[in-house]
Amino acid sequence: MSNPPKADPIAGTPAAAPAAAFAIPRDVTLWEIFVTFLFIGAVSFGGGVVAYLRASLVLQKKWLDEERFLSALEIAQALPGLNATNMSIIVGDRLRGIPGSVVAFLGITLPGATLVMILGVLYASNAKNPYVNATLVGVGAAAVGMLSAVTLQIGRKQFGNLIDVAIIAVTLIMVSVLHISLIWVLLTVGPAAIIIYRPRKASGSGPSEPPESVA
């Protein structure tokens, strides 16, 4: 007979079991990876691919949690190339290794490559059409809205930390106001952030915790 759960000495009720740690699924098929990224590549119009990636990988498929998604996104943005293709390679590798990276990359790039070739021919003959230009402006505005929403959703933890907010503000000013090359921003802000968050030994034992959130 199993022992009953221990009671909370304060509330007098059984203590809740600790939440299980998130584990990346290893039974995802290559076909499922390909179809998922094919769909993301087909519907992510206007540059809002990050929002679609989060909706599919975190909310629907639950292949990643918020922390792992943000970690993969940070790596994808720091590497050369498009964020979407970098993300597909990283996530595919975490799910099924190199074969997963290959099918994820093919899935997310195939719709865009096909559509660009078709629309490129059509746009050449309709470039001055005001309805076409208005449609593109509307799609771009919607993409900005989606990117803003997903930034607030996945970055809410960083927005509660004064040091993180300072790093975000400095990066924003350097890129958007001073128009400094992204390479120089990475070479200056990146090492500074690494120094700030480097593991430190506490007065007792073990590394110290990162700065606490003010929220």
Rank of each mutant, 00 (worst) to 15 (best):
F37G: 04
D65C: 01
L64T: 03
E66N: 09
G47Q: 07
V49H: 14
E67H: 08
L38G: 09
D65Y: 00
E67K: 08
G48P: 13
T36R: 03
V43M: 09
V49Q: 12
F34C: 05
S56H: 07
G46I: 14
L57Q: 06
S44L: 09
L38R: 02
A55E: 07
E67G: 05
D65V: 01
L53Y: 13
A55K: 07
Y52D: 05
G48D: 14
L59M: 13
S56G: 00
E67V: 13
A55N: 00
L57E: 04
F45V: 14
L57F: 02
Q60P: 04
R54N: 12
A42W: 07
A51T: 13
I40P: 07
I33H: 04
E67R: 09
W63I: 12
V35I: 06
L59G: 01
D65F: 00
I40F: 10
A42M: 14
K61R: 15
G46L: 15
F34M: 04
G47K: 08
F39A: 15
G48Q: 15
V58F: 05
Q60L: 05
V49D: 13
G41E: 05
A42F: 13
L38D: 04
I33T: 08
V35A: 00
V50S: 05
Q60I: 07
G47S: 01
D65M: 01
V58R: 06
K61N: 13
W63T: 10
R54E: 13
T36Y: 01
V58K: 04
L59E: 15
L64Y: 06
V58H: 03
L57N: 03
L57M: 10
G46M: 14
G47P: 00
L53R: 11
R54A: 13
K62I: 10
V58W: 04
T36H: 04
A42T: 11
K62E: 12
G48I: 15
T36L: 02
Y52N: 15
V50H: 05
F37Q: 01
S56P: 02
V58A: 05
K62H: 11
V49K: 10
L38F: 07
A42E: 06
G47Y: 07
L57K: 08
R54L: 10
W63A: 11
T36C: 01
K62S: 11
I40T: 10
F37W: 06
F37N: 03
D65Q: 01
Q60E: 15
T36K: 04
G48R: 12
Y52I: 11
G48Y: 14
F37H: 03
G46V: 15
F39V: 15
I40L: 13
E67Y: 02
L53E: 11
R54V: 14
G41I: 05
V50N: 10
E66H: 02
V43K: 09
G46Y: 13
K62W: 02
G47T: 09
L64V: 09
F45Q: 05
A55V: 00
F39D: 02
G41A: 08
G48N: 14
A51G: 14
G46H: 13
V50G: 02
G41D: 04
Q60H: 05
F45C: 11
V35Q: 00
S56N: 07
E66C: 06
S56V: 09
L64A: 06
A42R: 07
T36N: 06
W63Y: 07
V35E: 00
I33C: 09
F34S: 06
